[in-house]
Amino acid sequence: MGVEGSGERRSGNCSYGSPHFLVEKGDFENYGEGRVKIGILAVQGDYEAHAAMLERLDAASVLVRVPGDVEGCAGLILPGGESTTQMQFLREEGLQERIREFAAAGGAIFGTCAGAILLAQEVKNPRQDSLGLLDATVLRNGYGRQIWSAVVSGHCVWKSEPLEMVFIRGPVFERIGPGVEVLAEYDGKPVLVRQGKILAASFHPELTADTSVHERFLQLAGFPAAAETAAAQRQ
């Protein structure tokens, strides 16, 4: 999938395939009985890609637009998008407080790219408000503008082979606190970190075919099926 190379002409041999997550749209709002439900912040950004990923893992999800939507969720995903746009909404809709309460009550939260920015204690370039749930400092657009965005691979603690990572105007974890565990690295920098039940990625696992990062998150959220799948894979 995808166009190979960057500079050369590719007349006649181009591909314009759809990213996998656009291929099937699951009915992710119909969560069944006994299934653990994951909320996905759906203010703006790639929330559908996360929903499609959860659907593939047979986890139920619900789109979160107002504080009441968080009710009954075992975990919450803060997707990629624009962190300034998203943060403004969290503030105006009263979701900022609701998400902090959710974290304080032991809820698992997973932020990717803009979501990781929202989770960080300190945001630079430029400075902005955040939820402050992760002991880390992030540099927005730390890898540069869109022309620097890329698909790369790096080491991840639970995989013997490298993990594929899609960076899109991604942030850089400039500093992480002593209680923060590094789960994956790229180019000598942490790119996937965990502190308690808070998981944050500076890349977009939801834009790849690899489900393992989301499986880890489902485990944090206490989702038994995901734990079984992961255990089966380890054997």
């Binding site: 190979e4 960057s6 950004g45 869109q146």
Partner: peptide, 19 residues
Amino acid sequence: NVTNDWRVKVGLAEMLKGG
């Protein structure tokens, strides 16, 4: 000048969704 594939381009468009 390294591979910057289709997913990265459509990926940015994905990030703008809902906006």
